[in-house]
Design a binder for these strands. Structure first.
Length: 560
RNA sequence: CGGGGCGUGGCGUAGCCUGGUAACGCGCAGCCUUUGGGUGGCUGAGAUCCCCGGUUCAAAUCCGGGCGCCCCGACCA
């Protein structure tokens, strides 16, 4: 019997002074988690129950697609990470043992799991495989934030698929996607799957599972059936009224006007009638000039993916040497290759003139400069996708699925012999899911003035049972019996048997947010009834004492 | 990594500018009261004022250094 009088649930009346995010405030106040250091959290008993309920849902769905659970260490030799080129990652914790050997704390487990497959798998007959575990991840985050939303240490379910070829990988990926859909549905939070960035390391495709909420760190672009992380999103731009092409380009004086806003105002044209220049330097040292409409922003991730390599912004002296004074640079009369964003359609634009205090009017792409067409701008609210208007929402990333290809099997030598006896690299996928983030997302999405309102599948307890009346009273006696009946009916109950006033008990029950609250008090007892409150919406009803547990169980099954 | 802020009983804060017995609310312990929305009363316990150093007769307060935490941004394989 879980009696609150003996349960470690340190609730607080006030949130921590430094908390901003709703989930941060409420999870601390409700006694679910406690902070240890920056990005370091302990999960207290009730919080851990939530975490483990989510874990169990994930486990069931991973097993259902043939995943095999195992466990790999967090502390690992640095050698494997050097081989895959990930040793240099800033977020990777690095340490030495007493003999001076280099070790790392894993931020994911591709290296280890791939090394096991490399040594244990020799034949196509041993594939495919899906291996997974729930294990702590360590990341030296530059800035942990928002309670358990972004921490330096957290538990992740990470699974890894191993297939003979890309077709096999695609199939494994789709099975994971379907499993993730079910996991998110079963956990009971709102979510959507979005296209994601595959990163500079390449890869063959990636989707993220996003839970929309105010504290989310990611911006998601939504339009009809379209959903993408803003890092990779594309959309049709809002139209801009361009001045008519007037024939030749014309110089205009724009003294000191280095911003789009200033130039647009001076020339009385919309900002979108300007072309903004963003010179970048590639790894080879080559400069390229990226141009987007004046009312648009360069999306550096899309640009990196378009370039196919990392880049940096050019420095003023580099710009001056190749183009002109920063603030007045443009595409006309330069040898620097030009990448023109596709949102800048044909027409006459205002651009920098590559001379101080001067812009050019009537510049027409194609006629006045040659360019390569690219899609490198950041999508903005109000753009459209297939006619549907774009909106942008913040969201928490709770899961990410990723087609790795041979990114890890090559450096770690994970090969097999095919039917023809030829050595082939194993094709891999990796699939992460964060139970802590899922929990925090649910808190964020359903919290109200009184506190948390858990989806029933991941609540710390199914039922909060509040008894009013002194120990030894008839109310207590009835509540004791009810607890046993609820257990028989399959409901896990937190029994508030504390010697506290009704207000305090109700407040704590609603703060903790179990989907159903039962109250046994003199008032209801006299009527041979028990009060049932549905946490979400806080509607109350009465059920007869006789058969109450079964009635509550039935009610509970119908809750979200 | 850049910018800003904060560190005082378990929690939330005041005191700091202008140096002189560490204060308030909540919580906690005991007794009484109350029992359908954080009840009221009495009594009491609980603080190396983040750390180190300096100035001073005297430092929570002033000065120097360090550590820790939060927020905004950058970053996030």
């Amino acid at each position: 019997m879980t009696r609150l009088s003996a349960y470690f649930l340190p609730t607080e009346r006030e949130p921590p002074a430094d908390a901003e995010a709703i989930s941060h405030k409420l999870m601390v106040r409700a006694g679910l988690v406690r902070q240890v250091g920056a990005g370091l959290w302990s999960w207290l008993p009730a919080g851990w129950r939530v975490h483990e309920r989510i874990v169990q849902i994930v486990r069931e769905e991973m097993n259902a697609i043939g995943g095999q659970e195992m466990l790999m260490p967090v502390l690992q030799p640095a050698e494997l990470w050097r081989r895959t080129g990930r040793y240099e990652i800033d977020e990777l914790f690095k340490l030495k043992d007493r003999r001076g050997a280099d070790l790392v704390l894993a931020l994911t487990h591709e290296e280890i799991v791939t090394s096991h497959v490399a040594s244990a798998v020799q034949s196509y007959r041993q594939l495919p495989l899906v291996l997974y575990h729930f294990q702590v991840k360590e990341r030296d985050e530059a800035r942990p934030r928002a309670g358990v939303l972004r921490t330096r240490e957290f538990i992740m379910k990470d699974s890894y698929s191993f297939d003979r070829d890309s077709e096999g990988l695609n199939a494994a990926y789709e099975r994971h996607a379907a499993a993730y859909d079910r996991i998110c549905d079963r956990c009971g939070f709102e979510w959507y799957k979005v296209e994601a960035d595959v990163g500079v390391m390449g890869g063959h495709g990636s989707d993220e599972y996003m839970a929309p909420c105010a504290a989310g760190e990611n911006d998601v672009v939504l339009a009809g059936a379209y959903a993408a992380n803003i890092e990779v999103a594309s959309a049709d731009p809002q139209p801009v009224a361009l001045p008519n092409g007037s024939g030749a380009t014309e110089s205009v004086d724009t003294p000191g006007m280095t911003t789009v806003e200033a130039v647009a105002r001076e020339l009385a044209v919309p900002e979108g009638a300007l072309l903004k220049a963003f010179p970048v330097i590639l790894e080879t040292g080559e400069m390229k000039l990226v141009m987007v409409r004046g009312d648009h922003r360069v999306n550096e991730i899309k640009l990196r993916n378009t370039l196919g390599e990392p880049f940096r912004a050019a420095r003023p002296e580099e710009i001056a040497e190749k183009l002109g004074p920063a603030g007045f640079i443009g595409p006309v009369g330069t040898e620097v290759p030009i990448l023109l964003d596709e949102a800048a359609g044909s027409g006459a634009y205002v651009t920098g003139a590559n001379r101080s205090d001067t812009h050019l009017r009537g510049v027409e792409p194609g006629r006045d400069f040659r360019f390569e067409r690219v899609d490198v701008r950041t999508v903005a609210a109000g753009d459209t996708v297939a006619g549907a208007t774009v909106r942008i929402e913040p969201a928490i990333e709770v899961g990410n699925i990723f087609k790795l290809g041979t990114r890890y099997s090559e450096p770690l030598g994970a090969t097999y012999l095919d039917e023809a006896g030829r050595s082939q690299f194993v094709w891999m996928g990796s699939y992460g899911f964060g139970p802590a983030r899922a929990a925090a997302a649910a808190v964020e999405q359903y919290a109200d003035e009184q506190g948390i309102s858990w989806p029933r599948a991941i609540a710390p307890f199914d039922v909060g049972l509040v008894v009013l009346g002194k120990p030894g009273s008839p109310e207590r006696e009835l509540a004791d019996g009810l607890y046993a009946e609820l257990a028989e009916a399959g409901l896990e109950t937190l029994y508030d048997d504390r010697d506290a006033g009704p207000g305090e008990k109700f407040a704590d029950a609603e703060l903790l947010g179990c989907p159903v609250r039962l109250t046994v008090g003199r008032r209801t007892l006299a009527a041979e009834e028990i009060e049932v409150q549905i946490r979400r919406g806080r509607q109350s009803r009465a059920v007869p004492v006789s058969g109450a547990a079964q009635a509550v169980a039935e009610l509970w099954r119908g809750l979200p």
